[in-house]
Nucleic acid binder design. Structure first.
Lengths: 244, 244
DNA sequence: AGAAGGACCAGTGGTCCGTA
DNA sequence: AGAAGGACCAGTGGTCCGTA
């Protein structure tokens, strides 16, 4: 906890070279099952490129010394439950594991806030992402986590349906983007069964409640509810008269 | 609701002259008991004054036409429960009434958001203040409401104690600032009785839950808890040994 | 001196788009 | 073409301080 406290009390330093850490993309080719996650790659300096005509001294050492490349996480592929991705890929169990890690980081941030009597986040906020980065989990970032939230939601709310979908998309050789898109539909169906309140559905699930409902999922639920309501009113005639 | 929808869908226009509305500071000298609240004063243009050297064409009509002054709400004075402030003053029942109004505005904003399938605020946010202004309640503003939140909290959580305090401070002829300061102490005492969790206390009260816990109140609770803990550990000796 | 509130500012939620 | 994520941006929570 002492270390954690330190990590939080310093600000995120973008200008100083960050301390390098070891990594071999946890889970991408390793043993299997338990993810021994540590810090990430070789990233260096990536200074701002756009934003106005600020050009002077912009690229003092843009060559990065000895040709080491800016490192990213390996891309995800559709894997079935329990399957470990081979080659320079990460599997979906690993993806979902990242959400559990974020939850752990949130809990740490919450504990620190409570100790200090500061306001205590209930969601995975920017502060939590900053904390995760400081704690060495540089492979966690906001755009990625937000991108796949609804996939994780399906995994939480109906693991069986999620597994079926994963197997089907793996079998068909679909890419991650296609699988990701396909995750919306069963979620909307779940919302339909529960009165369309997707926020309530997220909040009722302890591991999901800490994630913001994705805008697109919210919109899909709303659109689907509207057209369902229109359809059910049109079967009774479609006019202004009372049903039945 | 149609009007409400319109009000929300337009952005707050700072540059255009806002539509003028009638007002005679509701409750400041009126009948008594029920606040017939409407729009506010004569405010005009108040464009930015600081922020850089942007000077050109800054004050095309700074004289405001015919000498009409920029209008503010009358200041609050300490009144006892049920008492209506006389002269160019507002009483504390009116102050608390503003919090109830904000709650009504929040509920309207929530209803609109639900209809539209947008994310739904649980607190009085900037959006709600903007909505209130559009709806004609220009006497409601964020700095004022935040300033007195803890006073309203005491009123909600222990109306009897709040009333006693009001009578005492009125009798002593104290000003609003002194009364406001004095509201902290009984709140900290309430928190002490309930395990020091001021957020939980706010959230447990339906009318209070929509307000952010004021920073200073949170800090006071934290400081008081710490010193209470220190005191209770020092009576048992003050050392590192176990109590008892 | 006491008080009301416009306006500022650091850090947020959200996601685009230059990058690999 | 498909995907990861730095970095941007509009609007937020918070409150200072020029104003009356």
């Amino acid at each position: 906890t002492t270390n954690a406290l330190d990590a939080l009390s310093q600000e995120a330093g973008l200008s100083e070279e960050p301390v390098q850490q070891e990594k071999e993309a946890a889970g991408s080719g390793g043993g299997g099952g338990t993810w021994e996650v540590v810090g990430a790659g070789d990233k260096k300096k990536q200074r701002r490129k756009k934003q106005g005509p600020r050009m002077i001294a912009e690229d003092e050492d843009d060559e990065m010394g000895g040709g080491s490349e800016r490192q990213r996480e390996h891309p995800f592929i559709v894997t079935e439950p329990g399957e470990v991705a081979r080659g320079k890929k990460n599997g979906l169990d690993y993806l979902f594991h990242l959400y559990e890690q974020c939850r752990d980081f949130l809990i740490q941030v919450q504990n620190i806030a409570k100790e200090r009597g500061e306001k205590c986040p209930t969601k995975v906020t920017n502060q939590v992402f900053r904390y995760a980065k400081k704690a060495g989990a540089s492979y966690i970032n906001k755009p990625k986590m937000r991108h796949y939230v609804h996939c994780y939601a399906l995994h939480c709310l109906d693991e069986e349906a999620s597994n079926v979908l994963r197997r089907a998309f793996k079998e068909r050789g679909e890419n991650v983007g296609a699988w990701r898109q396909a995750c919306y539909k069963p979620l909307v169906a779940i919302a339909a069964r529960q009165g369309w309140d997707i926020d309530a559905i997220f909040n009722a699930h302890p591991r999901l409640a800490i994630w913001y409902v994705p805008t697109k999922l919210r919109q899909l639920c709303h659109a689907e509810r509207s057209s369902a309501a229109a359809a059910s009113s049109s079967v009774s005639g479609g006019g202004d008269h009372l049903p039945f």
